[in-house]
Computed example of a mutant assay.
Amino acid sequence: MKVEIEPNLFIESDTHGYQVVKYTGYRFDKKLNRDVETYNVLANFQTVKGCAKWISLSLKVKESTAATLKELVQDVKRIEKYIENKINF
């Protein structure tokens, strides 16, 4: 599974669980003699919901302009909804 949350940010799965992955571009691999995509695994989880919560709290909340705790809680809920809609729980 590979679900795009926003440009260059994905939730991916493997046999061990789910990862939040950010793709960073390409680099030339001399052994393969071609460009390969580069990425960073930002976090690992056992569930997709764990990925969604991490994305909302760790990445998206940083963009919040909340001035009060109430506004911050509203932003977190809005962001969680956004992520859930992207991955269709």
Rank of each mutant, 00 (worst) to 15 (best):
F89W: 13
F89D: 13
V76I: 13
G50K: 13
K22P: 06
V76R: 09
L59Y: 07
N85T: 00
H16E: 09
E12D: 03
Q46M: 12
V20H: 08
V48T: 07
T68D: 03
G25R: 00
H16D: 08
Y26C: 09
G50F: 11
T24A: 13
Q46T: 08
N88S: 11
D14K: 04
K62R: 15
T15E: 15
H16I: 06
T24E: 15
T68C: 02
L9R: 09
V48Y: 01
A52S: 07
K53M: 13
N88R: 10
T38K: 06
K60M: 12
V36A: 03
E80K: 09
Q19E: 10
K31C: 10
V61M: 15
T47K: 01
K2T: 05
E84P: 08
Y23D: 00
Y39T: 02
K77Q: 08
H16N: 08
L42H: 11
E71M: 03
T47W: 02
N88M: 15
K53F: 13
C51P: 05
L59C: 10
I11A: 10
G17Q: 04
I87N: 11
W54S: 09
E4F: 09
A43G: 09
I79P: 08
A67Y: 12
T65S: 08
V20S: 02
L59F: 01
N8V: 08
R34L: 02
W54A: 02
A67N: 15
E63I: 05
S56M: 05
D14N: 00
A52N: 04
K30M: 07
V73S: 15
N88D: 12
V76Y: 07
N88W: 12
